[in-house]
Structures are given as structure tokens and as C-alpha cells.
Simulated assay, not measured.
Amino acid sequence: MSASTIVSVDNLVKRYGSLTAVDHLTLNIGEGEVFGLLGPNGSGKTTTINCILQLLSYDHGQVELFGRRATPTSYDLKRRVGVVPQEVAVFNELSVRENVDAFCALYVSDRARRRQLVDEAIDFVGIGDFEKFRPSKLSGGLRRRLNIACGIAHKPELIIFDEPTVAVDPQSRNAILEGIQRLNREGATIIYTSHYMEEIEQICTRISIMDAGRTVASGTADELKSMVGTGEKINVGCSVPDEATLEAVRSLSCVRAAAYASGHLLVECLAGDHNLSDILGVLRDRGVSYGRVLSEPPTLNDVFLEITGRELRDEA
């Protein structure tokens, strides 16, 4: 393992009876990365994270943190890790400041040092005006930001964010994402899970897609897009084409699907350099007048659905 590797998971297996939740998973996360961990419900993301944190025993494999093998009693390693869980996990009977202090006290015993760290964490997430409030008096976005302050107050080198923007308003989501990027610029390595593909594409330097407990694809967003046949989506405002014209468009080698609705020809393409000119050429040859043309590049969401399928998954 490279000296700059912060997390190394080697051949990890976790079973629950006959169910294999994590199936010989291997991944490495380098220092300074914002690593996106994606997967449909039940793909093994949360189980993997809990194994990395040594909160779950596992059947096979090894986890290393900061170049050392991690065990349930590796408290010196755990002090270097921060966790922001999906569910807001704070004490309702404590104020905002008292909450941040309580979590920071798990890692920092010196009161003067802890006071400084609590001040910095509260200022970092922008909840200084609410430090005397109880969590029940805060909005959903402010509770999320309190959750983050509790997870980062001890200045961890590795921070795991598990769906930190669920059910928050756009302003809070933007503040959270900017905060995560700032933490990364200040030296923290980030593991980030989310079902919001645009967030993953916006902030992650590398992405791993899990399914059925395995890594099925890994790379940068651009690399993932190049791995599958998904290409651009083309929207052509045009007069009504006859069925023969639609079939001619569908028969193009670059076209995966084509349909006409409400004055627009909608075409899903494979990756290619001449998709638009080929489609417009068919329309011109068949006398179909057209106007506005939009071409949308493939998104990470397109890639995710292509790799993991479009079937609904049970929560697990």
C-alpha cells in the first residue's frame, strides 16, 4: 500500500447468514481525495463504511487506515476519523454548543483546546447565532449543519459523510457542499455517499459504484461516462415525422431509442462524434422541417442507471 493511501480495503467479505452484503470488495482511497461511494439501495455501501469504521465484524479481508491495520480497539486510528451519519445524531437535551463540545470531548480532553475547536467548528458551519438553541428549535438544514460540526470538531484527517444533504433546502445543500470542499482544501480526505448524482459529480475527484456488495465501476466522472455506451440525448423541435422517418432515425447505428412527443423528436444516442449530423440528415432527406436543437451530454445519473439497472430496489 502506498504511504499516501488513507483507506485500504482488501478482499472484504461480510455475510448476514445466507446474504453476502459485501462480496470480496477491494478499494483504496488516497490522501486528499473526495471519494464518492455510490450504489442502489442494498448494494453494501453502509455495510462497507461500518466495516471500515470497525463497527461491524467481517468474515474475511482486511482494512487499513493511515497505513496500519484497523481493529475494533484501534482507538488511536479512530481519533483521526470523523463521521457525519445520514440520520442526525445529536442530543436533544443539549444546546448546539453543548452538543459540539460533547462530541469533541470524545477525542480531546483538554478543555481550553476543546473550547477553541468547538468555536472553530460552529463558525465553520455558520451556526454561531444558534449556539444556545436546542436542536428541536432548529430547521432541518441547521440540524444537518450541527451534525457536521459534531463530526468535524476534533479536526479529523478522514471524514465520512453519509448522505449529508438529505431533505434540506437548496441554500443549506449549497452551504454543506461548499463546506465539504473547504475541508478537503484544508487537508481532509473525504468519503462521500449520496443519491444526488449532481453532488457526486460536483465535488468528487474519484467515484466507485457498488452493486451486490461489489465494485462494478470506478474512476473519475469522465472515465465512468466513457465506460458505457451512453451518449448524448438530442432534442429536436420539428414537424410531425411519419412512422417511416422515425424508423429511419431508429435504424441509425448511433441511436438507442427515438420517439416523438409534443412537437419534439427525442433521441437517445450511443457515444459518437456525428450523432447530431446523422439525425438531422435523416430529417432533411425526408423533408421534415426542424427548428431548435438541444444536445445534452451524458450525466453521471445516466451512467449509474446503465451500470446498475433501472429496477426499483428495496431499502436495505
Rank of each mutant, 00 (worst) to 15 (best):
S109K: 14
S8W: 05
E232W: 07
A153T: 14
E87F: 00
A261L: 13
V9S: 04
A212H: 11
R69Q: 15
I122F: 13
L158H: 03
A316D: 12
L12Y: 02
Q54W: 07
Q181A: 11
R206T: 08
V22S: 10
V83Y: 15
D59Y: 00
D211F: 06
G229N: 10
V267S: 10
D285G: 15
D211C: 13
Q86I: 08
I234D: 03
E31H: 14
N184I: 05
K155Q: 14
L300R: 04
G44S: 07
G229T: 06
T46C: 02
L25R: 14
R80T: 12
I52R: 01
E199Y: 04
D119H: 11
T189E: 13
F161L: 08
I52E: 04
R145C: 02
G82T: 09
E232G: 11
I49G: 11
N92P: 05
A102E: 07
V282E: 08
I279M: 13
R313D: 05
T308L: 01
P72N: 11
A258H: 00
G187S: 01
G187E: 02
L138R: 14
V63G: 00
S139K: 01
Y196R: 12
Q181F: 02
L305G: 03
T26D: 08
V84C: 05
C254V: 15
S74C: 04
G126C: 06
D278I: 00
S136W: 08
S239I: 03
R182L: 06
L146M: 10
I209F: 01
K78Q: 08
L142N: 03
G281Q: 11
H60M: 12
C104E: 07
L53T: 10
L55D: 12
A217L: 09
A3S: 15
L146C: 07
P156Y: 02
G281N: 14
K137I: 01
L146W: 07
S277W: 01
L65Y: 01
A105F: 04
I152S: 01
S239W: 11
D119A: 12
G291L: 12
P135R: 02
V9P: 00
D10I: 07
Y107A: 10
Y260A: 08
L158Q: 03
S136I: 09
I234A: 09
Y192A: 05
C150Y: 04
D278A: 15
S239E: 15
I307Q: 02
A188M: 03
C150R: 03
P135D: 06
T220L: 05
I209K: 06
D59E: 07
D110L: 05
